[in-house]
Amino acid sequence: MILPRKEILRRMREHPVSHESNLVITPLVYDDESDIFDADSVDLRLGSYFLLPKTMDQPFFSPDRSSATSLHVRVHVPLGHFLVVPAHQTILGATLEFIKLPSDVSGQVLTKSSVARTFIVVETAPWIHPQYRGCLTLEIANVSNTPVLLYPGRPICQLILMRISPTQENAPPDLHKNKEDDASTRLDKTYFGPVYPEAPKFKNPEDDLWKIGVTRVSTFKRTRLHITKKGWQESK
């Protein structure tokens, strides 16, 4: 069931933050509720921090533990300024709003229709799991032939919230009770509570593939050559 505005507001206001049903969306800046709350969604704004693609020093990007952060360069664009997204380029941004989902609610992020009509596409991995907390990292692609300006602080996407049926697996952990078998068992801590767009985090390919029984894995090794009397040799 998609949560209607009334239910969204109720979950935000009626429960304390530690309650499993509590929903957090902060900051809320509006004149009137209807500025950001639709009947079945909440508008989210673009934050001020971005990760832009970096010119690589090698011919490809290898998603592994050591090079995950080598793909991006961090940029801050304060409110009132803009960022130019070149044609056919994708950047990472984040929502201005920090959200926390209840334990029985999943979320989906969709590009705002007006934004989509400028050929800006937000999110290709739009699903948000229950209990997620943090500013949402947004993959923002300019699929048009024209550079487009993005202004931090402007609405860019909408959050749709869906209630999932309660089962033993998604039963909420009681964060107050400080149990040893705790929230850590169910929360995804890879991307926990970010307030900036986050670079991807990978394990090394061999670690992932070992889990399915693969024992021989090719890796790219960058080598450096130096000249010797015998010709070019690989540096140790």
Partner: peptide, 20 residues
């Protein structure tokens, strides 16, 4: 106490209504 409650559950301190 409300600020500490937020931090305890890994959330940015805020107030449930639109204030801060």
């Amino acid at each position: 106490s409300s600020i500490e409650d937020c931090l305890r559950v890994g959330v940015v301190p805020h107030t449930p209504t639109a204030g801060a």
